[in-house]
Every structure is written in structure tokens, then in C-alpha cells.
Amino acid sequence: MDLVNHTWTQNFLLAGFTTTGALQPLAFLGTLCIYLLTLAGNLFIIVLVQADSRLSTPMYFFISVLSFLELWYVSTTVPTLLHTLLHRHSCISSTGCFVQLYVFHSLGMTECYLLGVMALDRYLAICRPLHYHALMSRQVQLWLAGATWAAGFSAALVPASLTATLPFCLKEVAHYFCDLAPLMRLACVDTRWHNEVHGAVIGVATGCNLVLILGLYGGILRAVLKLPSAASRARAFSTCSSHITVVVLFYASAFTVYVGSPGSLLEGIDKHIALVYAFLTPFLNPIIYTLRNKEVKDAMKRVRVRIRTILQEV
């Protein structure tokens, strides 16, 4: 049996988090509640954008795309997290493990590209207001959204396929889902070259998007500072504040784990950091985009009035 075939005939054991006694059911119930709230919050954003015509703008279209992505992103890993919390470990086939690895990184890179597109949308709205609707037509919105998904799922092929061809001597993954760093530690061979390739691919994908975002916000800052009144400057900044918050949350944690060598962190540290960008960020995004956004609050009021009117008529 060759090494590649050996890779595909074994199962992996996800170690998850160490919880004992009364903490185990509490951790499970807390995680399940946050997961269900995450699904409900992101579905609510999607439905609200579709239900209220005043939210039919490029900015809210991309927010709804982000919410749709977050539904899949959080659902890729949380079910195995719940299983490990309930049973203290979770067995996963090698095929399922590598599929999870690929889908998780595809969605993560798609989110990187999508955050860049959302920064471009804010730049055009503030710096090119007269040409904004022509530049960001419905066709362009759809093309940009589709391009982010295509780019994300294409870029993730490299790290996922390289990892899947490695021979593994150990099977216990020190994580709650199949990720690059913990899988690298189980390989029977030297993985330094693989780590360098992974770091380069993921670093370029995330780094270039971050440079793009910073450059676009530099242009936004210059344009906003030229506005005549403090009220107009505050109004312009308010349309960007939610996006900036999401970018900081996502990139700060993702860069810690993936930029450089994916295996450089101490064993077990990466799974705690992963909770931020893979679990908490999808949970916080709907809150950030609703509590910090007056237009969304107004849309919620209009939808409530519409629902109340329909119920009264019935």
C-alpha cells in the first residue's frame, strides 16, 4: 500500500475542547444557543434586505451575500464542535475531513474577497457619488459577488489538495475541525515545504485583500475630511463603521493563525483563536449590522408595521 492510499483509508479523531463535569453540558448548550442565534440572525438579514425595497442598494446586497456565506461558514465547523463537546471527541473519515478542510478554507477566502468588494462599494459611494449607481449596477453587483465565490473556492484547492496527499501516522487532531496546522502535525514526512506553500497562498489571498481594503479606506478618509460639515463627515463614516468592525474581527484572528507558517503556533492555541473568526464573527455580524445601522433599524420598523397591518386585515 502506498503512502497516498494510506492517507485515504484511515479515520481522524477530533479532540475538540477538554470539558468535564458540569461544564460539559453548559458548554454544549451555550454553543448550541449561539449557533442557532447565528443562523437566525443571518437569515433575518437576508430576509429583511429582500423584504424592504429601501434596502435594495449595493451595500445591503453585499451584506446579504455576506450573511448567506456566514450561514454555510459556521455550519461547516459547529456541528463537529457540538459533537466533540457532547462526546468529548468526534470521529471523522479522511474523506469527510479533507472535504471539511476544503469547504472551510474556500468560504474563508471567499469572505476575504467579499470584504474587499464591500470596501470598494463604500469607496465608490463616498468618493464617486455621481457615478456610483452606474459603476455599481445590478449586473456588476452579481458579477462581483460571483467572482468572490469563484476566487475563494479556486484558491482553496491548493492547500486542501496538498494536505490530502500527505501520509499521516497519527490520527488525533488537536482541534474541533479539520484545519491545516493540526493536520500538518500528524504527517509522517517533513511538511516545511507544504507549510511554506500554504502560507504563501493564504497570505497572498488575505494580504492582498487587506492592502486593497486599507488603500480604499485611505481614499475614503481623504474624501470624508474634505466634506464641509462635521455632520456630513459623521454620516459618511457611519456607513463604513460596521464594515470596519467586521474586517478587524476577521483579519486580526485569521492573520494570527494563517499568515506565515500554518504550523507555527503552539499545539492547541489555533483552535481557541479559530473560535473568533469561525464561530463568534458569524454570530456578531448580524448584531453589528443591525445595532449600528439606522437604516436597518428603520427597515425593521417598516416590516413590523407591514406585518401588523396584514394580520389586522386577516
Rank of each mutant, 00 (worst) to 15 (best):
6 H>I: 05
8 W>G: 08
10 Q>E: 05
13 L>E: 14
13 L>H: 06
16 G>I: 04
26 L>Y: 09
29 L>W: 01
30 G>D: 13
35 Y>F: 15
39 L>T: 10
40 A>D: 00
44 F>A: 15
47 V>Q: 13
50 Q>R: 15
50 Q>I: 00
51 A>Q: 14
59 M>N: 10
59 M>Y: 02
63 I>A: 09
68 F>W: 00
70 E>M: 14
73 Y>P: 01
83 H>M: 11
92 I>G: 05
96 G>I: 06
100 Q>N: 14
115 L>A: 10
146 G>M: 03
153 F>P: 03
159 P>C: 04
164 A>Y: 07
165 T>W: 10
167 P>G: 05
167 P>T: 10
167 P>W: 13
168 F>S: 02
175 H>D: 12
176 Y>R: 01
179 D>A: 15
180 L>Y: 01
181 A>F: 00
181 A>K: 06
184 M>I: 06
188 C>P: 02
189 V>D: 15
195 N>G: 13
198 H>C: 10
203 G>Q: 04
204 V>W: 07
207 G>A: 04
209 N>A: 03
212 L>I: 03
216 L>T: 08
218 G>F: 09
224 V>I: 12
224 V>M: 04
229 S>I: 06
235 R>T: 12
241 S>M: 11
242 S>A: 15
247 V>H: 01
251 Y>H: 10
255 F>E: 13
266 L>Q: 10
270 D>A: 13
273 I>R: 00
276 V>T: 14
277 Y>M: 06
283 F>E: 02
289 Y>E: 14
297 K>W: 13
299 A>R: 02
302 R>N: 08
308 R>S: 15
309 T>D: 13
311 L>M: 12
